[in-house]
Write a protein that binds this DNA or RNA. Structure first.
Lengths: 255, 255
DNA sequence: CTGTGTGAAATTGTTCACAGCT
DNA sequence: AGCTGTGAACAATTTCACACAG
């Protein structure tokens, strides 16, 4: 598609499919690891294995970014790291606020991978006055009364909500009113936001329930098996049922 | 769809699409809330709004489970709660172990929604001997030396990995070897597992990176749009603009 | 020869729109 | 009359397989 001059205003990135966007961070992580080991180039096959996808998908994904590989050779690691970082907007620094400094909020504040790549915890906010001033991960917690001011002073456009479910929507409304346009929601609630605001959610119990579904099905199939010749303990069913949130984990189909 | 089979027996759940499975927990949550408010029935329109999807999708999703609604009326809340719970395997209790009791592990252990619905924290496991015996969320932490025994004694089939990245794969291997067949991975690593084992991942930095991508694009478009005054302040509150796959993913970082 | 880049096919998921119960 | 259940159209994503650049 790199060759196809799709009639489009001179704007930046062509429409990169959402599914591809969701995998770019995965590729980036794998590439960063290679970069740290000073590996100069990598093939789609190797990189795909490291990222846990298949190589065709990876090549297709990269084709949306442009032609960054060399036929017969592979991809230049450093160059790809840069291109993907740029595509993801990680060449700039994103100030982030975390609202709700309970167990989870504290865990997030302490999470290293946070700062490492393009994100900076600009502020921690909690509604509990007793928390105010207390440092978490080296950053003093601020009271939620000042939420709007904090957002504006720091030019924050990404907010992380780690409050109890009941507080999530009100907090979300205030964040959005103050100018936040991307929200990562850890509270088990559906947030409603105006158009133009992105929300992504991370929900432990949903993930567990999805696992339970598959777990249950495994148990059922196990019981149903038995007439078969061999006695292999584990799932032989070709229904490679492992899914990630978006992609799969390595799976080699015996064609 | 099977043309002649209008009356399919209840339990023969043929392949429910993965995207549908990923939404069932969402419906279940909305229904549980309705149930607590003693709402007897709900229409696809209302329930869809509560779950943040559109009604056609919801009806289609439910159609995979069977015909549980009443035309002209809607769905019986209690009945649907039961049917979805059963479909997700939540009518039984799943013992879960959490490995890695740092900030995040502790947050997970304390997370209420955990126990509430079909899941029971059977054990907390950490590699730090200093943690052993210390209670977290009322449960004493056990040393990882005993991991295999703990898994077997408790009949655990679902494991949660909240260790640092480096420890995740070895822990995963031990869990799998001990009989765990579903893993929820919070460590920023791609886990490789044998066939038949499900892995779902929850990854903060991936989610943030996806948000950054969209955030960057918004900034670019804003610049390109130039001529029309301020931000288009509001529009209809669309439900969470879920890009993920998710089914993504949605998902957490579906992802 | 090797491994990328990509049309085309296959699969999966979403939306439409309306027939058919209640 | 109202709302579910669902075929059929549509859209997105994944996989295949191979031309072709290096």
């Amino acid at each position: 598609m790199a060759t196809g001059r799709t009639h489009r205003p001179a704007t930046r990135s062509r429409g990169i499919p959402e599914a591809t966007v969701a995998r770019l961070p995965l590729y980036l992580r794998a590439l960063t690891a290679l970069s740290e080991r000073s590996v100069p180039t990598v093939s789609s096959e190797e990189l795909a294995a490291a990222a846990g996808v298949n190589s065709a998908k990876l090549r297709k994904d990269f084709s949306y970014l442009g032609s960054y590989g060399t036929r017969g050779v592979g991809y230049d690691v450093e160059y790809l790291v840069y291109q993907i970082s740029r595509e993801l907007g990680l060449t700039q620094d994103w100030p982030v606020v975390i609202v709700g400094i309970g167990n989870l909020g504290a865990a997030l504040a302490n999470y290293g991978g946070f700062a490492s790549r393009g994100f900076r915890v600009a502020a921690l906010i909690d509604a509990d006055p007793a928390m105010a001033g207390k440092p978490v991960a080296g950053i003093p917690v601020q009271h939620s009364d000042d939420l709007e001011k904090i957002i504006e002073d720091n030019g924050v456009s990404i907010g992380v909500i780690a409050t109890p479910a009941g507080a999530a929507q009100p907090v979300c409304d205030r964040l959005v009113a103050a100018g936040v346009t991307s929200i990562l929601n850890f509270a088990p609630t559906v947030l409603s936001v105006p158009d133009g605001v992105d929300v992504r959610k991370v929900d432990l119990s949903i993930e567990l329930q999805i696992l339970a579904f598959h777990e249950q099905r495994k148990a059922g199939e196990e019981a149903a098996a038995g007439t078969d010749g061999g006695a292999p303990a584990v799932a032989a069913r070709s229904e490679s049922a492992d899914k990630g949130p978006d992609g799969d984990v390595p799976a080699v189909m015996p064609a």
